[in-house]
Amino acid sequence: MKKVIHRADTRGYANHGWLNSHHTFSFANYYDPNRIHFGALRVLNDDVVKGGMGFGAHPHDNMEIVSIVLDGALEHRDNTGKQEVIRKHDVQIMSAGTGVIHSEFNASKTEDVSFLQIWVIPAERNVTPRYDQKTFDPASRENALQVIISPDKSSDALWLHQDAWFSLGKFDAGKTLDIIPKAVGIGSYLFLLSGEIKIADEVLQTRDAIGLSDYDKATIEVIKPAEFLLIDVAMLG
């Protein structure tokens, strides 16, 4: 088993006044040569945007971009004419492909919006840009893993252009869960949203993360009630 630990207090941090952002991987002005990516997982930003503020129109290409709203509401607009609002329990996927211009603003003038912005390197470049979103029932992740994104276009989850599966879980203290790789060449990255768990002989607390590769099975022991995002992703050779 290979493992990498990313403690919450070792992440990059940027305070722009209207935006507080923690960067798990190198991003913008934060650079760490040892934290460029985990397989095809390239960006995991933990963002809080003040009411009435947001990211103005900016371009992306050849990246799969996922937004998971934790609290509040986020308004999306892009140059295809798409205009949507995503709220808590909503997940958004955007395949930037050949190129897209979009903006993201807090849909509230007064309340903060908290969300995860995640980028995945696609398996295929220059695809046609695409946008989708879906609301997921939080009851389905009580003491279980709820798959919200997969490579399978026919599943109930959203899909993206990469061997990557995103799952959310909310577990009571005392619960245990075994995780195994989805396939050869797939690693697992766990980001703890809240609580305390033990995995691979490591104790993780809120906003800590662990990446596992070349493993057969790992057991998650829930020490304190915990919520987490598990990303199974291609390790890119």
Rank of each mutant, 00 (worst) to 15 (best):
81 G>L: 00
156 D>V: 02
134 K>N: 14
172 D>S: 04
84 E>S: 06
165 W>L: 01
130 R>V: 03
105 F>P: 00
62 N>H: 12
155 S>Q: 14
44 L>E: 13
101 I>V: 13
53 M>G: 03
92 Q>W: 01
172 D>Y: 00
153 K>C: 00
66 V>D: 06
151 P>K: 10
147 V>T: 15
145 L>N: 15
65 I>R: 06
136 F>G: 03
84 E>M: 06
149 I>W: 04
90 D>I: 09
145 L>T: 12
134 K>Y: 11
76 H>Y: 12
156 D>C: 00
119 W>V: 08
80 T>E: 15
103 S>A: 07
163 D>Q: 15
68 I>H: 06
144 A>Y: 02
95 S>Y: 02
141 R>C: 12
171 F>G: 09
144 A>M: 07
95 S>V: 01
69 V>L: 11
84 E>K: 11
130 R>N: 07
70 L>F: 08
72 G>N: 11
134 K>A: 13
122 P>K: 05
115 F>I: 10
52 G>C: 05
134 K>D: 08
164 A>K: 06
51 G>P: 12
57 A>E: 15
75 E>T: 06
170 K>T: 10
89 H>G: 02
43 V>N: 08
125 R>L: 14
77 R>M: 04
62 N>Y: 09
49 V>T: 14
153 K>N: 05
39 G>P: 14
62 N>F: 09
